[in-house]
Write a protein that binds this DNA or RNA. Structure first.
Lengths: 348, 348
DNA sequence: TTGTAGGCGTTATCAT
DNA sequence: ATGATAACGCCTACAA
């Protein structure tokens, strides 16, 4: 039951110094290629350090300089969209010499708080976070600010007083999808939205409403269904929708999982896509092109968003000015497939 | 361009000591509830530490005790299977008070080496890894051993001299799938295997061969196709297979992505599943039940595997005995769906 | 160009 | 029960 430490002791600058009969400060300087060290000593130091397989003790350095070169990343989960975004973060961070530490909150506020506090206990230089759906208070995030550690929020927005955001233009996404359905001749378009208070959901719905209004189509409240981000809920909601007297002739779901649920209900009802009813999802998960019919969807620039978040983060890390809090908004694009395309033209 | 440190200085045990006019050693002891501190001082220390919002500086502690309470996890990517496994690791680690640091190698050996070396530079207490497909040499992993840091490999096996493994019984998975196809009356069963030297692939193929032999079916080398773990390769391979004179009447693919590729080729050829040809995949990704027809697949206990890996890791961390290197083998199960079920009976 | 010395926050080994 | 002090590995004024 004894916790174990390091056995084969790592060489330290002390060892190098001893070997060369010089002081540790000289070694330290030589190792970081300081200008005021003679090239001979430098060479000697390098040689010995290699011979001894010297590796700087990052813990000691971090402790000393109060910087870990580690970025904390917290995400609600690692689904297709988020794991791709994380890959983008990784990409930029690694290149900039930072290590990324990924934690999942599992959409739980408690877990998120736990993660932040662990990270805060000195292991990270800042935080890139996509908050859990439960997160309504941001005290745990503000704690980073109090220590002047940069924060960047991505995917899901948080109040701008707190941190810069990198998000998708969700309204535009909803607008794109709805406009497309209208162009294809659908008249009675329903939306499966997410929970009522979720920003992402409302934004996509706003785009939906905007498109309808622009086309002088009245927004029918019966066509707006709030349900969980979940295939089963979407299935039942769609089932109900299709039973109603004036059933919709198209459905826009704000996630692909919901689109799947809707699709199943549509098929059960014996309706054909796109002729009887149109369907557009959101996220463009790869499986959509494998289904019958293939399903149209709004695609996010996931990888780009991750890269952008990391880029902004690192900029802030290297700057003293933390006042200019910006919100970076990336544009989605629509991928048109069979489920919604009933006119000729140039869909993809 | 100035790197920033911590602004609002965190309280330290020194501050607490000063406030109470006692020594820092007493504070340190009180804080960790040592038996030889009077309960009064203890109480006082706790009170002040709360008032000052004292948080131990983990960096200092880690530096001092040479232990970070962080587990490094390296995976080739964060696809469905691996991200679920990571969730399992997370689960156990968090509960045990460890923080998990996840890095992706992107199936690149170089990236994997970089990740390990960064982690090794003192930030982690050990490593849980699923090696990249490029990884043939294990020196970078052995370095952990040299420092006596525990390693656990999961999902993809590495030589047992190096570390304990938590893997799936891949042979049994291949056996299950093939037996099922035989039971369903298929006679000429092909396998889309992975690259020739990949352990996982060979094991699944061994199971395939075993099932055939048990049923006195000759293993036909023309029915064994090696191709990349990839939808497109599988598509072309299947296309070729179906063109051959004596075309197979069933295909077992060692991944679901490959099954998709095969499915597309089968449909193009105008063959029906399961009547004309049977198909079984591997991994049981959720989308399989959404396809037409739904596709049978071998399911791994992903979450369990993650938990198991973390459990073993933590056991080793707390034990001095590192000699007993075991390989933990978990059993997969077969999920039978439409693509392979042409007899009655109790499939799922 | 090089060396000396102090300190980062904590733990642990001595004393007292 | 408590205190003084050294040490962990490294960096960085300051001094020489």
């Amino acid at each position: 039951m004894v916790l174990k430490g390091i056995m084969k002791k790592q060489a330290t600058i002390k060892d190098i110094a001893k070997r060369l009969n010089i002081s540790i400060s000289t070694v330290s300087r030589a190792l970081k290629n300081a200008p005021d060290v003679s090239s001979e000593t430098k060479k000697a130091v390098i040689a010995v350090s290699e011979e001894l397989h010297y590796q700087p003790n990052r813990l000691a350095v971090s402790f000393r300089v109060k910087q870990t070169n580690t970025i904390g990343v917290i995400v609600p989960n690692l689904d297709y969209v988020l794991s791709t975004m994380v890959k983008g973060i990784d990409e930029v961070a690694l290149e900039a010499g930072y290590t990324v530490m990924v934690c999942q909150s599992n959409e739980s506020f408690g877990r998120e708080v736990l993660n932040t506090s662990r990270m805060l206990q000195s292991l990270v230089d800042g935080l890139i976070i996509s908050v859990s759906s439960e997160t309504k208070s941001f005290d745990h995030i503000k704690k980073f600010q109090e220590r002047d550690l940069p924060i960047v929020a991505f995917d899901r927005i948080i109040p701008e007083i707190i941190a810069p955001n990198v998000i998708l233009d969700n309204e535009y996404g909803g607008y794109l999808a709805t406009m497309h359905l209208i162009e294809q001749g659908y008249k009675n378009i329903a939306i499966l939205a997410g929970p009522k208070n979720l920003g992402i959901s409302n934004a996509r719905m706003d785009g939906y409403k905007k498109a309808l209004k622009e086309n002088k189509i009245k927004v029918d409240i019966k066509n707006i269904i709030h349900c969980d981000f979940n295939q089963d809920y979407a299935y039942f909601a769609t089932k109900d929708l299709l039973k109603s007297k004036n059933r919709p002739d198209a459905i826009f779901t704000i996630s692909d999982r919901m689109a799947i649920g809707a699709m199943i209900a549509i098929k059960e009802r014996g309706l054909k896509m796109p002729s009887d009813i149109g369907l557009v999802g959101f996220n463009n998960e790869p499986m959509l092109s494998l289904l019958t019919p293939t399903i149209s969807s709004v695609e996010q620039p996931m990888f780009e968003m991750g890269k952008m978040a990391a880029k902004i983060f690192i900029e802030r890390l290297h700057s003293d000015d933390h006042t200019n809090i910006t919100t970076e908004v990336l544009k989605p694009r629509l991928i048109i497939r069979e489920s919604s395309k009933r006119k000729g033209g140039y869909g993809i």
